[in-house]
Design a protein around this nucleic acid. Structure first.
Lengths: 208, 208, 208, 208
DNA sequence: GATGAATGAGCGTTCATTCAT
DNA sequence: TATGAATGAACGCTCATTCAT
């Protein structure tokens, strides 16, 4: 009967956080499989096994779950990126390199958890899009890169295009990376860094 | 009833192709305005003035019209790209440069027609995502680049990543380009080419 | 094959008007049994046997069916009341008497149709409120009475109270009348007229 | 834990009656603001601050709270009406006059309390329909009138219609009265009495 | 082939009500 | 008893799709 509790331990609290997590997990899956637009609130609740109305005890809309998921990603990745920024003051290339590596590691990790949680009997659920977490982290990287590019000393040819191009490379290479086994974040980061800084002509002609 | 024609272009065939075109036009508009996900078959047929059922005499679903639209773009762009390939045999850089320019010109043109067709009293219909044609042409470019990269003499570090990166830059810069006034396809092509070939460090420090 | 048609006779048109009528009939019933607030669109369509979506091919909302029903009643009763007004110019008592009689006849008729249409195997569906038609007709009578009272020569003690009182008597006596068998519109009209004009003390002490 | 009380008014009982009152108060407000149909159990419990389930420890449904509220009104008004009946034995006109006055005073009072309880910053919450108390008191008056009418010496033309008519006048004039400022219960009672006893023709031609 | 009303699954959401705590 | 999350039926409504005309 006595109870030393650091966290809420009543059965009620327990099922509450379980449900919340179940909804978040289901939402992550559904967004990943169907994409944000196609996903429906009912898809999410169906996957939890909960009753329809229960969803609304936790979130008011699809948008809100999505935001919660994205926030989560941003909160986990934000500090990492901040540290990188601090370490790379003035060294643009170092920043690019480290930020890309951190980004690739993060999405690889997410993806891993994602895959792991899936029951093995549904072999070919293709992932249609990013999870909200990945999207959020991507946005963080984009912002950081845009600032880094804008802040570079010396006039720049076209910062807007530059940021767009860098970001595009990061995202696309990231997606490809996730499709490979084993997932090689180091390799992807090296490639993306080289590509962004020096272009195709700067890439090593022979694979490592 | 009367029929003076050497080719089977009777009234029946005429309205058939007219309807098909009407549906395609309407679909193009709707996809542009609403985006693929948000657009509904109803939106499309509403705009044609045709009956709901008529749609299904031509296409079986939203997906299918989209594909048809994309095919159309691909058919128009295919020959252009083929010619470029023929002209640039062995000269990878030239191919990249010309293909990008052709791509940017094509999408700028599409976009222009799009804008022009709109009645001037609805000033701010923002185009949601790419049109199907852009998507298709983009796919063509991707294929060509992949082949060009794969076919480059000498071993390459990672053709898959390379193609992905090039393609990503092309797409992203293309999108940005369309947002600017005036639409500068030359400038975009120059930037993308330089970025792809030499990376950020190879870009001119000062704007032209 | 030849067809002399004064009204739309295609099967399509036929079922269309049938459905419209079915919906109106069902709505009338549902409003009568459940009252406007409690009635739902689904109650209405359920009773028609049509599919859920079909309702919306005819009316956009509960409000709209209600309005259609009410309009119908008003259109049928409007001319009658107008004629009475014209006949009774300057003779307030005559107007009251005739208007009440017309009102009671109208609602008796409505109620009769109503009852007749019901399948006899549901013995005790209590009518919760007026049908929209009755409500509309009632409103017409109210307006007419208010004008008549306001327009009476000589200053009046309190036209607002007077109209409210007359109207209240008409409605309440009307409701009671409908509960009796046989429905005696003449008797109800006589009573209401006497009551309104002369009060309890003016009523004959013995029933006719 | 400590309990110094001669009557069983422990904490338990106190909160029990408090909760019951809280629910009744909230219900009164909600019915007044939203009307009976529109009001939901949720609206009521939300306003009490109690938990959803607690409601069902006291009442089984919206209907039941409504009835309780009505009972309350009836219990407060019942004795008043009884006294009037006793005072007016045999004098029908006196009974009508006094009962109406008591009725109007009661509903004015109810309405006043209602208005007064409202926070002054929400100036225009219109009261939707009658409060349950008014409905109940109204019912008492109806019963009394029916008995009085039925018990009048001499045969009566139609006691059922008569009661309905009187009651209708009382209700309608009462409603109008509440809409006016200042609320004039005397005036309303005078009007209603005159109208009921002598009809329109018996009303004074000029306002007082 | 064109038509357009009918269909019914499905969506987002609310609500009365239950019941483990 | 009070609590408040869970429940699931029901609502209004839209949509892709069918099919008799």
């Amino acid at each position: 009967m006595s109870q030393v509790a650091y966290l809420p331990v009543g059965k009620r609290e327990q099922t509450k956080v379980q449900n919340r997590l179940a909804i978040l997990d289901a939402a992550r899956e559904v967004f990943g499989e169907l994409g944000y637009e196609t996903a429906t609130v009912r898809d999410i609740i169906r996957r939890t096994g909960l009753a329809a109305g229960t969803f609304y005890n936790y979130y008011r809309s699809k948008e809100e779950v999505f935001a919660a998921l994205a926030d989560d990603g941003a909160h986990r990745f934000g500090p990492i990126l901040k540290a990188i920024r601090a370490q790379s003051l003035g060294d643009f290339e170092a920043f690019i390199s480290r930020a890309l590596e951190a980004y690739f590691e993060f999405i690889a990790d997410e993806h891993q958890n994602w895959i792991a949680r899936r029951p093995p009997d549904e072999p070919h659920i293709h992932i249609q899009g990013e999870t909200p977490e990945m999207a959020a982290v991507f946005k963080e990287v984009r912002d950081a890169m845009e600032q880094a590019i804008a802040g570079r000393q010396g006039p720049v040819s076209d910062p807007d295009y530059m940021a767009a191009a860098c970001i595009a490379v990061a995202r696309e290479v990231g997606d490809k990376m996730l499709e490979r086994r084993p997932v090689d974040t180091k390799g992807a980061a090296e490639f993306a860094t080289a590509m962004i800084l020096n272009g195709l002509k700067g890439l090593p002609k022979a694979p490592a």
